[in-house]
Nucleic acid binder design. Structure first.
Lengths: 209, 209
DNA sequence: CGAACCATACCAACTGGTCGGTATGTGTCA
DNA sequence: TGACACATACCGACCAGTTGGTATGGTTCG
């Protein structure tokens, strides 16, 4: 299986490098040659593994999504014993992840979709899937923390889950504009307070009942 | 003054077209030739008015910011007679502006900064200025609605003003990912409810006192 | 077993087209 | 007449993708 391993290594190396460069420069400004040079492979190898630059971008979004999914799935906030605690723990982790350089902490899907949404439908769809899929992991806990259920309750929870993603994506934009992640931390704090207040109101209603 | 007028016309026509194309495709994917063709001018005219593509992008961000400033300065929400009413009126206007095609309603600064923040410092700075300047127009009313004052109160209001911009920027990203502005409306609704709740709490405290 | 065959992984050089930018000419108006 | 506002034609660098090949390791069959 040496061949399979080598193949995986090279492909993954290209994807890791592409992930970094795409987050730094965006899709249009990232040259295939740059990726090849940074990954230490030739262009022939690149086009052996990926049909086109667009196919690479697609794979990179999925690669990014997979990595993020693994990261959050294995995080400790799941051990909190209330739904509200888990959601606030999730946000605390998101804030903690803001340490580090901007290209390492921002969302590839959010970055690329702005360039791609009108011109590259496949990339747009992959970005949408990544963001929506991540938001979806929050829905059950948000619904439970709000004390809602049924289709309508789930819809409300889903709207809030997407709202959290909007805040985080917007926080990244402000961070990029300001050239530092500080503002993003403040945004996540504000979001945490907002959600805590919503969960608190829900809990009080529940207790009263 | 015919020459001055013609000059202004051409320059403005280029800027208007560039604004549209940059919002549709981003900086990297927008060709100077595309802009020239769409504006009905030749390349010579383009480079007569702008030193480089980057200079055009810079001017386009400022052009966008100027237009937005004019739009919001002349809006009717300023006639609301409470600070909270004006802020919620502002958000209602932002929601109303979501009608129309995505490239027409999204923020050029937020779109371009993602591509430019690492590679084009001048563009990043112009985007930052546009976003921060717009947020700044909200600070006095937010501070008043929160019933805070002094340097610390203003800082709190400024954080909230930036938070509103983060939500709106993030809402645009989700809208682009989903291919429709509906989600952005939901995000602004959530933000409105959050702010209304904050203002309400502040008001109650004030009354009690 | 081992020779013939084949698929996979990768490489280096090249190509055809694109794109930002320039050099130079032309018409117009004060 | 000269300064300004363009137009035309062109350049050189760049860049996604191709081509024609090699090296390696696995599979088949006598």
């Amino acid at each position: 299986m040496a061949t399979t391993k080598a193949r995986t290594d090279t492909r993954t190396r290209i994807l890791d490098v592409a992930l970094r460069l795409l987050r730094e420069r965006g899709y249009g400004a990232t040259r295939v040659d740059d990726i090849c040079a940074a990954a230490g492979v030739t262009k022939g190898a690149f086009f052996h593994h990926f049909d086109s630059k667009e196919a690479l971008a697609l794979a990179a979004v999925r690669h990014f999504g997979d990595g993020a999914a693994r990261l959050f799935a294995s995080a400790t906030f799941h051990e909190e014993n209330t739904p509200a605690g888990r959601i606030l723990g999730y946000l605390a982790l998101r804030k903690a992840l803001l340490a580090g350089a901007l290209p390492d902490i921002t969302c590839l899907a959010g970055t690329m979709v702005q360039e791609a949404y009108e011109t590259h439908p496949a990339i747009r769809a992959a970005c949408e899937e990544t963001i929506a899929g991540h938001a979806e992991t929050l829905v059950p806990d948000i619904a439970a923390a709000l004390g809602v259920s049924g289709a309508e309750g789930e819809a409300r929870a889903r709207r809030l889950a997407l709202y959290t993603q909007a805040v985080i994506q917007g926080a990244f934009i402000l961070a990029k504009a300001q050239g530092g992640a500080a503002i993003a931390g403040a945004c996540i704090d504000e979001l945490s307070a907002h959600l805590a207040s919503l969960f608190d109101t829900a809990k009080r209603k529940e207790t009263k009942r």
